[in-house]
Design a protein around this nucleic acid. Sequence first.
DNA 1: GCTCGCAATGTTATACAATCACACTGAGGG
DNA 2: CCCTCAGTGTGATTGTATAACATTGCGAGC
Lengths: 175, 175
Amino acid sequence: MIWNNMTSEATPNPVCDDALVGFHKHDHKNCVETALTTAEARCKQEGLRLTPVRRKVLEMLLQEHRALGAYAILDALREEGFGSQPPVAYRALDFLVKNGFVHKIERLNAFVACSHPGADHSPAFMICRKCDAVAEAQSAPAKGILGAAARATGFEIERTVVEAEGLCPSCTEKA
Amino acid sequence: MIWNNMTSEATPNPVCDDALVGFHKHDHKNCVETALTTAEARCKQEGLRLTPVRRKVLEMLLQEHRALGAYAILDALREEGFGSQPPVAYRALDFLVKNGFVHKIERLNAFVACSHPGADHSPAFMICRKCDAVAEAQSAPAKGILGAAARATGFEIERTVVEAEGLCPSCTEKA
DNA sequence: GCTCGCAATGTTATACAATCACACTGAGGG
DNA sequence: CCCTCAGTGTGATTGTATAACATTGCGAGC
Ligand SMILES: [Zn+2]
Ligand SMILES: [Zn+2]
Ligand SMILES: [Zn+2]
Ligand SMILES: [Zn+2]
C-alpha cells in the first residue's frame, strides 16, 4: 500500500501524508488515531453521533486503507461483538457516506475511507485491477466534455461517479 | 424517453438519431432493426458469433432504450424459451459488453445498449434519479484532473467509469 | 463416418450485496 | 413518569454475480 492518499494537488486536511514517501512505512497507528479524533471533533461540532458501531467501521476502513466490501466489514463487526446482520453494517456505512467520511466505490461494490474528509469535494478514484489498491483524487464534474454535454441537453448534475481502472505504479513495475 | 442518445458532438454511426427531436416519437422499430443488422454485419466481419441468446439480449436492450438489470433480462429470456438461469444472461451480457455493443452502468448494476457501437470510445453516462433514463455521451479520461493525477503518480488508466446522477430535462421541468 | 476439440448453452448451487419488517433499548424532553 | 425517537439487534427476503459441472452442436482432421 505504497501509493495511497496521493492527490494531484495540495488538499485540505489530508489524512495520511506519509503514505506518499514510497516504501517508507508510515506511522499508520498515529494516522488512524488522528483521523478518528478529527472525525469525532467534527461530529461533535455538527451534532452528528459517531456511535460505537459507526466509529468501529470508520476505524476499520482507515486501518485497512483500501476498499472493503460490506460483508468483510460485517465479519469484523461480529468479531468485535457487534451485531452481525447486514443492516448493522449498511446503516453505519450509510451514515459515514452521507456525512462524507467514507466513499463508495461503485465498480467494486465496496467502501473506502475518505482521504480528505470535511472538504466538500467530488472524489475520483484510481483502482488497481491487480492489487485492489484504491487512491482518491479530485474530479471536476462540471468542467470537461461531460459538463458540456449536460449543459447542452439540460441535464442537472447532482453527483458524479468517476473511477479509473488500471495498474498502480508498483504493479506496473512488476510487469 | 425523450432525450436518449443525445451526444455533445456528432458521432460515428449513431443508433437512433431521431430520439434527439424531442417529443416526436421516432421510428423505433426501424431503429432497432437497423442496429441489429449493423451488429450482425460487424460480427460477421470480425468473426464474432451473435448467437440467438446474445442477439435476443441485444434486441431487448435496443428495444427498451434504457438500463435493464440482469434479472429483468433473464425474465424476458425465460418468456422467449431460452435458458432462465443467471449464467445464461450474464454470459450474453459479458459478450456484448466485451465487444462494445452494450455498456454496464455501475451505479445501477444494469446494462444499456451502446449508442454508437463500433466506435472505440470511453462512454460517460447521465442518469436521471427520478425516471431512470440514461443518456450516453463521450468522456476523455486522459485529459482533465484525473489524467493529471494518474500521470503524476504513475497510474496506468485502462478503463474509466464516468456516470453523472441528477435530473433529466423533462424531470427538471416538472419540479 | 468418426472423433477430437472447442465454443456455447443448460443446470444446480452458492457467494456476495442490499433491503424490509419488527422488536428492543436508552437518552432526552414534556 | 411517560413519551418520543434515533440507533441498534435480529430474522427473513430479494437482488446481483459466479463457481462448478454436464450437455449440446459444429467444423477440422483422420
Ligand atoms: Zn495511513
Ligand atoms: Zn497494484
Ligand atoms: Zn431508438
Ligand atoms: Zn428524468
